[in-house]
């Protein structure tokens, strides 16, 4: 299968502290890849190094065979990104933010269709500031999908969403995956990981402590649930350090 995201021996330090330590990731087209780990485990740093907004100390990164820093303009026609922290102008309205985002790309999906799909049609004239956190989260997923991307990066996909909204987002992402979309996401919800991810990478202090599919993760642990297995992976290594 074609590899869309390829990360080899990625390392990154901040002020002498190793934030990402020799991480390898390979994501096949049309699959969903999950990065797991506690806050500060290095998930966002890895995503930023992949996207080229942070420069790695060593290692290689390519998306769709392109270098994210050298071929930025070409690459980001095909890649949608939702960052963890919301970045939008004060006093901007939902429709305006969508319209500006749409204008950045050559080919796009009609954002009105996306707003409808995510139940935000009536909010088009509302200030982004005034949306509930769940609505805002859905809006940022929409922004990542506007370029009709081949790959999307979703950092903390459904944080702040209620159960129904999370299910809706899952269903929509599953549908897009069937259409061939590749997704790289981070999440703290194990049910979400189980429902969506083909492969996962569990991080502990910047190191990969597990890499494979969800079943393998559970089988290689003494537990039967992913949540328990996940805690086992992350805590076992913590104990080793002590």
């Amino acid at each position: 299968m074609e590899t869309t995201i390829n990360v080899k021996q990625l390392s990154k330090t901040y002020d002498g502290i190793l934030a990402v330590d020799n991480v390898n990731i390979s994501v096949a087209r049309g699959t969903v890849f999950g990065l797991l780990g506690a806050n500060g485990a290095g998930k966002s740093t890895i995503i930023e190094c992949i996207l080229g907004t942070k420069r790695q100390d060593s290692g290689e990164v390519s998306i769709l065979g392109m270098n994210p820093q050298r071929e930025r303009k070409k690459l980001f026609e095909k890649v949608g990104v939702q960052f963890q922290e919301a970045n939008y102008q004060e006093n901007i309205r939902v429709g305006e933010l969508c319209e500006v985002t749409e204008s950045l790309y050559k080919t796009t999906i009609d954002y009105k269709v996306l707003l409808k799909q995510f139940g935000l049609s009536e909010k088009s004239k509302s200030l982004v500031n005034e949306l509930s956190s769940g609505q805002r989260q859905r809006l940022f997923i929409i922004l990542a999908l506007i370029p009709n991307p081949e790959i999307v990066f979703l950092d903390e996909l459904t944080t702040g969403l209620d159960s129904k909204a999370r299910r809706d987002v899952w269903n929509f992402l599953s549908y897009l995956k069937k259409q061939g979309l590749t997704i790289l996401l981070t999440s703290h919800f194990m049910d979400e990981i189980e429902a969506l991810c083909d492969e996962i990478c569990i991080l502990k202090q910047g190191k990969t402590v597990f890499y494979g599919n969800v079943n393998e993760a559970i089988l290689a642990s003494p537990f039967e649930k992913l949540e328990d297995a996940y805690l086992w992976y992350t805590e076992e290594f913590e104990n080793e350090n002590i």
Binding site: L51, G52, F76, V79, N87, E90, T101
Partner: peptide, 18 residues
């Protein structure tokens, strides 16, 4: 400085625009 602080400039770095 506001747009940098709110990471709006950073968001433009992951689009074909700049």
């Amino acid at each position: 400085s506001d747009y940098r602080h709110k990471k709006i400039l950073k968001r433009f770095k992951v689009t074909p625009s700049s």
